[in-house]
Amino acid sequence: MFNWMRNKRMFVLMIVFIVFVAVLGFSIGDRKKLSWPENFVMDASGFLQEWLYRPAGYIGGFFEDIATMRELSKENEQLRITAAAYARDKINYNQIEQRNIELMEALEFTERQKQSNKYNYLIAQVVSASNDPYNPTIRINLGSKDGIQPNMVVVTTKGLVGLISRVDPFYSSVMPITELDVRSPDSKLIAATVLREGKGKEEQESFGMIESYDKDTGMLMMTKIEKDDKLKKGDVIITSGLGKVFPYGMIIGTVDNRQVGDFGLTHTATIDPAADFDKLTNVFVVQMPNMEESGQ
């Protein structure tokens, strides 16, 4: 009798273990739709966490503001200079935009081509953030009902924060770009280029792939840069939009240094990320026009 009980317990344990391994394996990687229990738990916890995160954020932010009070006047001065530069550029921009539209008309661009660079920025509030060092997911209060889809890009005013990893009806998970890793089973590479200021457009455009993040140094790795590429230290790196999965022109960071890559054929650069990843309150989800169509 006892022996039989023992065997039964063993059997149940084995089944439970196998189920766990199956769930673990199944839940890795891209899943377009989640099942209803997942959706329910994720939405319910998001709803409750939302009531706690924002007040905590206000209080925490208040103390941080007091601490950084002194930097305020310096920041103000900087903003004034930027505003003056903006006013100058705005006139220039209006002219160029007008000219651009005329040229598009003249070349008979289709409606889709005209719209392809018009991104929709959806503002989202952060509802909670995971403390788990292996899975620092940030949860935001926009979901599939608001048109959010996996792999959309999430930015703050400073730069690229992450990618949407999971979507449920009213909330979604953001995986920060600090979790990019070319060796992981669900790795994603972001095509990047250099933000060129001024008129030197004739020179060849830079190209590289942001592929992983070094947790010790806090730097992103950009690989597959051509040897004769003009990328140099201090350049601002933006997403290139090649491949049409990620939008164009999201600031990623600045080049910290550049060295010969592992095989000597291409170069790699380390990028200092522009955005903060901790204690966010508001973020923007970038909706690409063609993504909206394909989603329906």
């Binding site: 766990f20 769930v23 673990l24 839940s27 890795i28 989640l34 997942e38 738990v41 994720m42 916890s45 998001g46 966490q49 909670s128 995971s130 788990d132 292996y134 899975n135 620092p136 997911t137 949860r139 990893s165 999971r166 998970s173 995986m175 979790e179 669900d186």
Partner: peptide, 11 residues
């Protein structure tokens, strides 16, 4: 696992 689902469920 579910509330912060990003990579894997069940760990």
């Amino acid at each position: 696992d579910l509330a912060f689902y990003g990579k894997i469920i069940g760990v």
